[in-house]
Design a protein around this nucleic acid. Sequence first.
DNA 1: TTAATTCCTAGTTAATCAATCGGAATTGTA
DNA 2: TACAATTCCGATTGATTAACTAGGAATTAA
Lengths: 137, 137
Amino acid sequence: MKLSTKGRYGLRAMVELARHYGTGITPLNEVAEKQEISSAYLEQLMSSLRKSGLVHSVRGAQGGYRLTRPPNRITVGEVLRSLEGPLVPVECVDETGVGCARMEDCCTVVVWERLRDAINDVLDSMTLQDLMDSGDK
Amino acid sequence: MKLSTKGRYGLRAMVELARHYGTGITPLNEVAEKQEISSAYLEQLMSSLRKSGLVHSVRGAQGGYRLTRPPNRITVGEVLRSLEGPLVPVECVDETGVGCARMEDCCTVVVWERLRDAINDVLDSMTLQDLMDSGDK
DNA sequence: TTAATTCCTAGTTAATCAATCGGAATTGTA
DNA sequence: TACAATTCCGATTGATTAACTAGGAATTAA
């Protein structure tokens, strides 16, 4: 039931970018340094975030990243789904997936559905702006 | 963010035992067969459940397991915590643990706390009885 | 032209998962 | 008493995943 470092690091990186929102683009190195994340690893995470349209990138010297939307319009859920895939506690309640043979008469599926919904509700209710306002670093 | 087979199999096994509640003890083999779980593997899970006091075991011929409390007084949360450990999305918000160096000025810890609470609220609000009533198998 | 940067793929190491195996201990029953 | 059914326990294994690291290609401002 744990998130991987992808989600944890990536979310911190996104808050960092949120702090720079409106000031042009920020090179990955600066983000990595501020948040103490290996920049080579962070690169991979930024690639996912870019592909799901949460950040825009500029290549070449003076290049870097910026959010594609203001921080109050990017939810934590979006960021984590981009990095971790569907936020489901078990495979079988992933709506984009295949379900499970047992599904029809499984006594536990109701648990996983409720859990999935609770998780997504919490994460979709918080934005990068909320995190900027609360934390320091 | 996925549960392991321990939690998934173990919960199904516990619902199976819930169905036999009041009828004496049930051998592990019967539970394993009904829920299509390797009985050798299920043994390990029962060991955890016994150690946390959720089931009582009887050794020897005609032995087996039974719940230590009626199904409406065992929550899904208890079962899963017994098998999976603390139900936290990230290490640092495990109250029984050590936290994290960054903790004080971490911008994301509030997310993990909210998520942790939501997860535990959902799982502690459902009992084995609830699952017996809903599902079939 | 060069230095700074993103982009992309592959490889590595360690940990974790999901069992399996073998046998010891216990206990009801023939 | 002997036996069969069961729980109990620790070790081992094989596969998968996690968390990076490495190397180089492509791009672009200065």
